[in-house]
Amino acid sequence: QTQVPFAGLEVDRDDPVEIVAAALDVDQQSGRAIFTGEVLVAQGAMRLAADRLRVDYAEGGEGARSRISSMNASGNVILTTPEEVAEGAEAVYDLDSGQVTISGDVLLLQGGNVLAGDRLVIDLATGTGRMEGQVRTLLQPGRTP
């Protein structure tokens, strides 16, 4: 368990979310939306790239627009902020709690050093992150820390 400051990340949960992809399937019955093909999610200073993104949203009240409650990205997930790059197999962005969880051989590149672990939990509101599960720092040979 290593506490990781995420200095470069100020993402306001109310910032608009822009999602770009090759295709989007909307299941009319459940309303679930699945983006496929070079998916890129942008919100504030955060970028999340993946092969596939499933978006679940909570039904809004009467007439109120429903809102995205969570996004599940899978396949070559890369999260970038102005100063950090995190990579993993999957990522779940829970908009309600403002938390992004990247899992599956996570690598975090931050300020020149590389941190590896099983799971990286980032709290967008406070801009802090926590690497969990066999956390190890990969020192790049030949670079003085």
């Binding site: 949960r13 109310d14 910032d15 608009p16 979310v17 822009e18 999602i19 770009v20 992809a21 090759a22 295709a23 989007l24 399937d25 909307v26 299941d27 009319q28 019955q29 983006f35 809004g60 109120a64 627009r65 809102r67 995205i68 908009l95 309600d96």
Partner: peptide, 21 residues
């Protein structure tokens, strides 16, 4: 069976979260 809506040829979505949730 039901109908499925498929957008193709490049898709862009703008979602504005409800402020103050």
């Amino acid at each position: 069976a039901t109908h499925q809506l498929r957008f193709e040829g490049g898709v862009r979505l703008i979602h504005q979260p409800e402020p103050g949730e």
